[in-house]
């Protein structure tokens, strides 16, 4: 059959010249430009913080206590109270917000369905995401601090309120991504709803849930406004997080940056770099944990 046919021309598969090609190139160029514009401020911030703060960081800076008066240079004294404060207050906030947030998202996705309570919780959670952080601080101030005084606990409440909607939202999205076929497979083996959720759904979503929670923690660690009215800002380390005023790295950055003294400025930059380093470590931890938990998903 092929013997008598006219030899065919080889099909032309090359990119057609003309407007389409140019359009493609323009779009690519614009995207690269946008990316660069985004990277520039980020890079600039990182560079500035590292440049200004690197010289201040030392073991003494990180563990020395108490925080000296603003007039003294940064090489004397240390930031330990702030580091301790950040770790303990954020830690406490995490302990309160993350389990509550995960349970709330589980309710919304697995149990609530379309009933009124689920709709209400979902709506409220979304509203809370938009509440300014200083308002959270004021809220805790008026209901807790006025009656029980300043404490790390109050700060933890405020940070927790900030973290809660983030955890709920990200956990909810992760749970929704778990395919229904997995749930059906579990039900078909005779599992109760609770079993299905705990043994199949949560493990399948755990990677995303953990990384979402860690992002919330990183965000909370860097908040200043909610802590203004809840912990006050002291210079001595306060290991008792449940009573007495406390301090944190963001608070110290704020108070030091507001001072005209060189020592204070330097201490501020050092605290900023420390805070960024803590967030960075949390990000890496999030990646490692996610990788570990999702090793069966590939």
């Amino acid at each position: 059959m092929a013997a008598g046919t006219v030899p065919q021309q080889a099909p032309n598969l090359r990119e057609p010249k003309g407007w389409r090609r140019t359009k493609n190139r323009i779009a690519t160029a614009l995207m690269v430009l946008a990316f660069i514009l985004v990277i520039i401020p980020l890079g600039f911030v990182l560079y500035t913080v590292v440049a200004r703060g690197a010289s201040i960081i030392s073991w003494q800076f990180l563990t020395g206590s108490p925080i000296p008066p603003n007039t003294l240079p940064a090489s004397i004294g240390g930031m330990w109270p702030a580091v301790l404060g950040t770790l303990t207050i954020t830690g406490l906030a995490t302990l309160m917000a993350v389990p509550l947030g995960i349970l709330g998202a589980v309710y919304l996705n697995e149990y609530g369905g379309k009933n009124w309570l689920a709709t209400l919780i979902g709506f409220m959670s979304d509203v809370m995401t938009g509440v300014p952080s200083i308002v959270m601080g004021l809220f805790i101030f008026s209901i807790w601090v006025l009656h029980f005084g300043y404490s790390g606990l109050a700060g933890a409440f405020a940070l927790g309120c900030l973290m809660l909607p983030i955890v709920i939202r990200s956990t909810y999205e992760m749970l929704r991504l778990v395919p229904n076929s997995l749930r059906e497979g579990s039900y078909a083996l005779g599992a109760t709803k609770a079993r299905v959720t705990v043994t199949v759904v949560l493990p399948a979503a755990i990677g995303g849930i953990v990384s979402g929670a860690l992002l919330a923690v990183a965000r909370a660690a860097g908040e200043t406004a909610p802590l203004l009215f809840t912990i006050l800002t002291v210079t001595a380390a306060n290991p008792n997080v449940f009573s007495g005023a406390n301090t944190s790295l963001p608070s110290q950055i704020f108070s030091n940056a507001s001072q005209p003294y060189v020592g204070a400025q330097d201490r501020g930059w050092g605290a900023a770099l420390t805070l960024i380093a803590i967030c960075f470590i949390l990000m890496i931890a999030a990646r490692v944990v996610t990788a570990r938990f999702t090793r069966y998903s590939r």
Partner: peptide, 10 residues
């Protein structure tokens, strides 16, 4: 089921 649905476990 129609589409195989092994759990993401070992």
């Amino acid at each position: 089921f129609q589409k195989p649905n092994p759990f993401p476990k070992s």
